[in-house]
């Protein structure tokens, strides 16, 4: 793989990664959100795969494959199953912030991410670190999704995006985390999603819906 291809693929992956996050902000359909998440997982897995092939690092390729399986296949499947159990809750109810404003805020957050990561890029300018702002923007967008969405399931999607963003930042800055660290982080996410799925079911049984605002009643 030449230097030019490497840079191109890496930039493409980071771009797709960020685009998936923006689409999550845009779409309301829960199934579409999960599909976007799967695409984002694939884009995330491309990063260690590309770096691994470019640097001929077998461990990194293994990490990439594991990430691909977990974040593009297993986790979205789990979430999709949670969506599929209920028919009337296909769509996100009215979000706290409307779609246009959300997209504007997303744009602002992306600019902010580019602004705050400048010192990091200045440390070691390379194709990988230049893609860091995209990963960082995904973290901020994910936090915004969690703040603005009502359904428990979209919260889970936001949480997974947050974790994807953190993982991408780690891959890009360190050019590959050790296998054991990545496995640990991924297993954490897997468990978190399982617990979230359980809690969603519990909420549905208790409140008859998964609108987080109903949790307000739990306050003393």
């Amino acid at each position: 793989m030449t230097q030019a291809t490497y840079t191109g693929v890496l930039d493409l992956a980071a771009g797709a990664f960020l685009l998936a996050a923006v689409l999550v902000v845009w779409r309301r359909e829960l199934r579409a959100l999960v599909r976007m998440l799967a695409w984002q997982g694939a884009a995330l897995a491309t990063i260690p795969l590309t770096v691994g092939i470019y640097q001929a690092d077998a461990a990194l390729i293994v990490v990439g494959v594991v990430v691909l399986l977990l974040r593009a296949v297993v986790l979205p499947l789990l979430l999709a199953r949670a969506v599929g159990t209920e028919d009337h809750e296909r769509r996100e109810s009215t979000p706290l912030v409307n779609t246009t404003t959300s997209l504007l805020i997303t744009a602002g957050l992306t600019v902010l991410a580019y602004a705050v990561t400048r010192p990091i890029i200045a440390l070691d300018p390379s194709p990988a670190t230049r893609a860091v702002p995209a990963a960082f923007a995904v973290i901020l967008i994910a936090v915004f999704v969690m703040v603005s969405r009502r359904r428990a399931l979209s919260q889970a999607v936001g949480f997974m995006m947050l974790d994807n963003g953190i993982a991408a930042t780690a891959f890009l800055i360190t050019s590959g985390v050790p296998l054991i660290v990545e496995l640990g982080a991924s297993l954490d996410v897997l468990f978190a999603v399982l617990v979230l799925g359980l809690l969603t079911g519990q909420m549905r049984r208790t409140f008859g819906g998964t609108d987080l605002d109903q949790l307000r009643e739990l306050r003393d």
Binding site: L112, L140, V143, F144, V147, R216, E217
Partner: peptide, 21 residues
């Protein structure tokens, strides 16, 4: 502490942004 999960998350997000800036 209103009990709204979103508000709590927003506190966290605001804190993160302030720290970053």
């Amino acid at each position: 502490h209103t009990g709204s999960v979103h508000l709590y998350l927003a506190y966290g997000a605001a804190g993160l942004l302030i720290v970053l800036l």
